[in-house]
């Protein structure tokens, strides 16, 4: 099976080399490390489709609506330019902020009307300190591997990962409040790409 995959991968690279390079995407040949190890049997091992889908997933995850709450530091980002959150609220152990600066002190169950007001969700938070799930600065390769690594993704298996597409906070990205741009595709499209990525082996794009 490994051989089959490898061959297929190589041939596809050959066929569509021009477009792949133009996008900055190449497929890695070391298949064993490229797809998720859990639930392996259940996955359709179509690495090309998976990687292509992740390309779109990545675009969404790196959009300000997602990356802003997946910062590399302990302060969330803000705005379409993903600047450090004004007033520097901190992640805290549980991801819900600290002391007088807890997320829900400002972020309400729903978006506050008006521009430059706090967007809302009943469960507004960052990933917790022991599972930071950093998006900011991650390459597609790094992010894909990180997303499927149970040690880094909150012990989510494929089923849980699939369900996560409909998580209320993920959905909040598509209801960002006045004046904020939407992710680069609809939630339905995103979910389709997300599932395609996962269902086809959750391959990571090459480094």
């Amino acid at each position: 099976m490994a051989t089959f995959l490898k061959n297929k991968t190589i041939s596809v690279i050959f066929l569509s080399l021009a477009s792949m390079v133009a996008l900055g995407w190449t497929l890695k040949q070391d298949d064993e490390t490229n797809y998720i190890k859990l639930d392996k049997a259940a996955l359709k091992k179509d690495s090309i489709a998976s990687v292509m889908a992740f390309k779109n997933v990545y675009k969404v995850l790196m959009s300000p609506r997602c990356v802003n709450c997946h910062p590399k530091g302990d302060v969330p980002l803000q705005g379409d330019d993903s600047h450090l959150h004004v007033m520097a609220p901190k992640r805290g152990l549980d991801g819900k902020g600290v002391y007088a600066m807890k997320c829900t002190n400002c972020h309400q169950p729903k978006n506050t009307p008006g521009q430059h007001t706090p967007p809302g969700n009943p469960d507004w938070h960052l990933p917790p300190a022991d599972m930071k799930m950093v998006f900011e600065g991650r390459t597609a390769h790094e992010l894909a591997k990180q997303l499927v690594d149970p040690a880094q993704n909150g012990n989510k298996n494929i089923k849980k990962l699939k369900e996560h597409a409909d998580d209320a906070l993920v959905l909040a990205g598509w209801n960002p409040g006045e004046g904020r741009t939407l992710p680069p595709m609809s939630h339905a499209e995103f979910k389709k790409e997300w599932l395609t990525w996962l269902n086809n082996g959750a391959y990571a794009p090459a480094k």
Binding site: A100, K102, T104, T112, T117
Partner: peptide, 20 residues
């Protein structure tokens, strides 16, 4: 717009910004 903190009061013990 929850920028300045002048309106902070406690809601179930948390320092909530009452303007939003």
């Amino acid at each position: 717009v929850a920028q300045c903190g002048a309106c902070v009061l406690h809601l179930d013990g948390e320092a909530v910004r009452s303007c939003v």
